[in-house]
Each structure stands twice: as C-alpha cells, then as structure tokens.
Nucleic acid binder design. Structure first.
Length: 421
RNA sequence: GGGAGGAUACCGAAGUGGCCAAACGGGCCUGACUGUAAAUCAGGUGGCUCAGCCUUCAGAGGUUCGAACCCUCUUCCUCCCA
C-alpha cells in the first residue's frame, strides 16, 4: 500500500487538487510539502495533531515536510470559519509563540533528516506592498475572491470583513509560491476548511510560474458525542505539559466515544491496518475494556510527552481508577501529585477546612456555591466516601496517606490536596 | 438625514412596577443505570458568612415605599424611508 492509498484508507484524504496527478506525483519520488500552524497561542493543541502526524507520515515515506508557523499571516487573521474579525497579536508575541511551538513540532518531525520549520513572517515581513500588489495581486480576480466560501460567509454576516482579512488568502497563496521558489515545495496539506485557501495557492503557482502545485486536505475531525475536539470542562487540551498534564492528555483520549476510537486510531497513530482492525474488533466485543481508547491514548501520550510522560499518565490513571483509593501509599500519591490537578495547603488547615472549601481549593468547583451543589447532588467524595455535608471539616481521617487527600467530583474528575507539614 | 424596533444569565428566548436571581429551550454539571461509554430518566446551573444576605436584566442618571419593567441622556444593533 503506497502512501496515498494509506491516506485514503485512514480517511485522511478528503479532498485534493489534481485528481490522479497527485498520487502519481507522490509515487514519482520525494516531494516537498508544507502545512501551516497557527501561532496565536504559545502551545499547539489536539486540534493540530492531524497536521503534525500527517507531516510525520510523509517524512517517514521519504518526503520532505515543512512546518510553517504563520507568524506573518497570524498578524492578519484567517477569516475561514471565523464569524468575526479577530484580534491581532503583536510581532513579539507571535515570535515568542513560534519559538515555543518549535519544540513541540520537533517531537513529530526529524529536523535532522530533511524536515524544517519556517516562519512566514520572515518573508512576508520583508515584502513591499507595491511589489506585492504588482506581482501577486495582479493574478487575483476580486470577483473570484468574493465567491470564496470564507469570504462570502463574512460578507453576509453583520460583522462584515475587513480589508485586512480579505487579503489573507493572498498571503497564504503567496506562502505556497514562495516555498515553491525557495524550497521546491509542491504540495500543501491542511484541514478541509483550508481547501479554499490552498487551491488559491495552487492557482497562483500556475499563473506566476506555470507550475503544477497540489493541495490535499483531511476531513474536519469531530467526536460523535458532540464534544468539541480537544475540549474539556477546563478548556483546550494542549500539547504543552505545563498547560495540560500528560495525565489529562491521556485521559482525554481514554474517554473518546467507542464510535470514534477506530477513526481516531487511523487519523492519529501509525499502527498498521491489521492492528487497528483488531482493536476495532475489541471495541465491538468488549467495549468496557476500552482497549482501543487506551492504545490511542498510549500512542499519542508517548509521542507528545515521551516515555516519562506516558509512565506518569498511566501510573496516575491506574491509581485513581484502580478502585482502591485508600490503599494508595504516600509515595504513590506523591508521584501522581504532579500529574493530577492538585494543590498544596498548609497543614494547619487540616481539620479547619470544610469539604466545600476543599473542593473549591482543589479546583473541582469554581465557587463554594458550586461545591455545595455538587455535594448536595451527591457528586463529590473524599477518598471513596461520598461527602454528604459541605460544612463538615476535612480532617486527618480523610487523608489517603500521611499528607494527601484524594477528592473526586463526578465519576472521573480527580484532584489531590496535600497538607504538608 | 428622517422614522420604527431592539439590547435579559454560557447561547437562544420569555418577562413590561412588587408573587423576579428572573419562565422555557439548548448547552454544561451531577445522580440513577453503566463500561472512566451511549441512550434514557431525575436534579442542578450568579455570589456569599446560605431558612438570610449581596451583586445582576447594554451604560449613566431620575421617578417611586419599591424598577429588568416607567422617564431622561449615552453607546451599540436591526428594520423602513431618503
């Protein structure tokens, strides 16, 4: 099975330009391709995973991936899928973000073996306006631009679209052509929402240089239960362990609905077809074991957080979901302390702090009222014991070990409180 | 430029002087049932020193014993006329 067939099988080839010419070109020999990443936050998140793993697949198949941090386009703002004009970041903020994202991309791509990361601010920033209008803008028809879905949606909305965002697609198209000129890049990959922007780049390549460029998009990844991709009650699931612990990252994948486990294994992992099909059969036969979800979580946690991160995530998960919370030792609890949401409190508060306050301090409830409601609804416990009174103090008897109390909200939200001496 | 109608909690949307911390729907949280599912049913969904109190109904003033609701000004939005 060659790369393109594999992408088809995995459901990653959703829409592409050039019809049969693209798979033929891929069979022809190594190709240079790129995928853009939005540097508007200092960390990538789960939503960027498909792009990262797709570039990785190409590199493993002998191609040359370029990750493009949109430091320049990030200063403009992509109108695709946005209902209103977005806030622009400063140049220095973007530069900082690009720097921290580089380390995350390095986990997926081998920069020593032909992969590279570039920041489009480097060439877009140097571009003169007149030069740009003359060399690039000349090739675009406003009539055609107005017909693009991303623009049309905004023209019809009350928010409208600024000239700045309207120009976005020209910038992205120019990126493609520039990468072709400087690095021989022939293919741009992205999510299906990018197909419009990508095909504009393909057109520009033909008009400016008479070359055939290609675009390939994957489908929008969604969850069958409607949970937003990479979202939890606490917010996005980030790749940065300081923002989302390996434990939380791992847990997000363990909790993927059965129906999505197979597709996600295909999208995100490099497991071979037979193995994925076997795991899908496992889900059908014994869904309660979550073999597929566990494997998915394991593969991705290993890739993103390394051996140590995976070990910590599995250790914490086994301890908390193992059933016997009271059987945990101080050492075990301290080991998982860093991975699970947790907080240190002075020993003096032991015996004085109420259960409601403890839940709030631990971050399981946003306010004491919410903690109270949680308790009244029977959804909170310390160790394995349900809390029945928000006012009852948390004392020595509630500790699972010498210093640590294990709090739980609902079925699977845990937090630790440590009352150190 | 003239005229009409709007702005309510995460979102949508009722309410138009006291019975309003504010109906209903969605979302979200929790319980039961389960598989750390789904579906279903039930409860909850501003804050606190919680049988009470405090801050909310675009913003600022005012009328009133009492205002989300009435009046004035301001900001923003929609529609009609030019």
């Amino acid at each position: 099975m060659d790369l393109f067939d594999e992408l088809l099988w995995r459901g990653l080839a959703y829409q592409w330009t050039g019809e049969d010419a693209l798979p033929a070109r891929l069979r022809d020999g190594p190709i240079t391709l790129y995928c853009g990443f939005d540097p508007s936050a200092p960390s990538l998140h789960i939503g960027n995973l498909v792009g990262l793993t797709t570039l990785r697949r190409f590199q493993k198949a002998g191609h040359h991936p370029i990750a493009v941090a949109g430091g320049g386009t990030g200063m403009i703002g992509d109108p695709s899928g946005k209902s209103e004009e977005r806030n622009l970041l400063s140049e220095s903020e973007l530069a900082e973000n690009v720097a921290s994202i580089r380390a995350q991309i390095a986990r997926f791509l081998d920069f020593d073996a032909g992969a590279s990361l570039v920041n489009n601010a480097d060439w877009l920033g140097a571009l003169g306006y007149i030069e740009f209008l003359r060399d690039v803008g000349k090739h675009f028809s406003v009539n055609a631009m107005l017909a693009k879905e991303s623009v049309r949606a905004r023209l019809e909305s009350r928010a409208g679209i600024s000239y700045t965002e309207f120009s976005y697609m020209l910038m992205q198209a120019y990126d493609f052509v520039h990468l072709h000129e400087t690095a021989g890049c022939e293919l741009q990959v992205g999510g299906s929402d990018q197909f419009g922007n990508i095909s504009v780049g393909v057109d520009l390549g033909r008009r400016m240089h008479g070359v055939q460029l290609f675009g390939l998009t994957w489908p929008l990844v969604t969850r069958s239960d409607g949970v937003k991709m990479g979202k939890t009650a606490e917010g996005a699931v980030w790749l940065d362990p300081a923002r989302t612990s390996p434990y939380a990252f791992y847990q997000w994948f363990v909790n993927v609905p059965d129906a999505d486990a197979g597709p996600f294994l295909r999208f995100f992992t490099e497991l071979p077809r037979e193995e994925i099909e076997a795991l899908e059969a496992d889900v059908a036969r014994a869904p309660q074991k979550r073999e597929a979800q566990r494997r998915l979580a394991r593969e991705l946690t290993l890739l993103v957080h390394g051996e140590d991160g995976l070990r910590a995530a599995e250790r914490a998960s086994a301890a908390l979901f193992g059933g016997d919370l009271d059987g945990l030792t101080e050492t075990e609890l301290l080991e998982i302390f860093a991975d699970v949401p947790s907080k240190d409190l002075p020993r003096a508060r032991l015996g004085a702090i109420t259960a409601g306050e403890a839940l709030t301090e631990a971050g399981l409830a946003k306010s004491k009222s919410e903690a109270r409601r949680l308790i009244e609804g029977g959804g909170a416990s310390i160790g394995n014991r349900r809390i029945d009174d928000a006012e009852r103090p948390v004392g020595l008897g509630d500790l699972a070990s010498e210093t640590v109390a294990v709090l739980r909200a609902g079925k699977n939200r845990f937090a630790l409180l440590r009352f150190a001496r």
